[in-house]
Design a binder for these strands. Structure first.
Lengths: 207, 207
DNA sequence: GCAAAAGTGCCACAGTGTGGCGTTAGCTCC
DNA sequence: GGAGCTAACGCCACACTGTGGCACTTTTGC
């Protein structure tokens, strides 16, 4: 609907300058980190939000000023990934096959994520796999990113562009599913490449 | 997770015989019909569940014995479609290109849905378009159907099968988006065919 | 310093979803 | 066609999520 004016989640500015902003960012990170840890232990649905608030020592009111929902805080790592992806794609040179552009941007993104993110992402994926509610939110977030991608990559044929983006995100999710059990950082790019190169053969699959 | 043992939603038996079952089915349909109408007027998020319960004259307890959630009742038409699709696909002969099998089954399904369904489906799509929460639930349901499809269409290459199914569902959603403004019954099959035939060209799209 | 602004905590409330329990209504068997 | 059984229902109370209002503290900029 709208691009989010003063909305919770997604702190766009690169580096917070004032003390106030850094402080707010600290509580945000504390909430996100503790959320993944806590939900990982007791399950997403089995952990009341109050448990998280108590541990981080933050009031409910403050929490909801930083995150839109309980799902939102659990999906912080996912949103960081796609946020970075959109940044990378915005700066990338868009020429040649679009499928390669989309893939290349994700490879760059994966290279750019730091060690801390690689610690928090796999547990987040497991939370998603275990909780349908979280999965729904994650899928919805992907859909929003896809809409944004269609908007940015203006192309004459609207339908084919949308299909290609849907395909790419689907390939990404397939790669994640194969990555999930082990979650070795170095293997994800290879899995994604393999998933993308299986796209064309998949269309001609025989029963 | 599990195939739903005595779970709410999805009445599998074809025709209810006893009076009790028919009565239960009537309240189910009354709830589903009224839900689409009511949510269509006042919006999904803007309509408390109590408004629906009051209009149908059913207690909250009874509602939740028939539907898993407020979203569930709003998505009745969507679930009916995919339920029928799985039935059709189960009975269909699976030979030749899998993409054609998937497409053919959906064309058959669209032909099999009755007039009443074609009245309720478009408003449901508009509800989904207007409410992120509903969209998330709808996407999650699609994901469950996809898992079921992978299970049924056993094929050596797991990855390519999953990709193909993801592609097909993506093409279906693209077709729906183009169908949405008008929603003329006869045009949906053509849109779906066009969407599916755009899949291969999409992969080689240039920036 | 000092006032405006941003952030936070506390309180109360609406809405969704669940468990317990007594009661009604349909089914079954005689 | 009557008695017992059982599924379904209504009502009550509760837990949890998310929001609005208001007072209080901290930071910022003058």
């Amino acid at each position: 609907m709208m691009p989010s004016s003063s909305a919770p989640s997604a702190p766009s500015p690169g580096q917070p300058t004032t003390l106030r902003e850094r402080k707010k960012l600290r509580t945000r990170q504390a909430l996100a980190d503790t959320a993944v840890a806590l939900f990982g232990e007791r399950g997403f649905d089995g952990t009341p939000l109050d448990a998280l608030l108590e541990q981080v020592e933050v009031s409910r009111r403050t929490f909801f000023r930083n995150f839109r929902s309980k799902e939102d805080v659990a999906l912080t790592a996912v949103k960081q990934l796609w946020g970075t992806y959109l940044d990378v794609l915005g700066a990338a040179e868009k020429s040649g096959p679009l499928a390669d552009v989309l893939l290349g941007a994700m490879l760059t993104t994966l290279d750019r994520m730091d060690e801390d993110w690689y610690r928090r992402f796999p547990p987040t994926l497991r939370l998603i796999a275990d909780s349908p509610a979280l999965d729904g939110h994650a899928l919805r977030h992907c859909a929003e990113v896809q809409e944004e991608l269609v908007r940015r990559l203006g192309v004459p044929d609207r339908l084919e562009l949308r299909l290609l983006i849907e395909f790419f995100v689907a390939a990404w999710r397939c790669a994640l599913d194969e990555w999930l059990p082990e979650c070795a950082r170095g293997e994800l790019p290879a899995l994604l490449r393999r998933s993308c190169s299986s796209m064309a053969p998949a269309l001609t699959l025989e029963a």
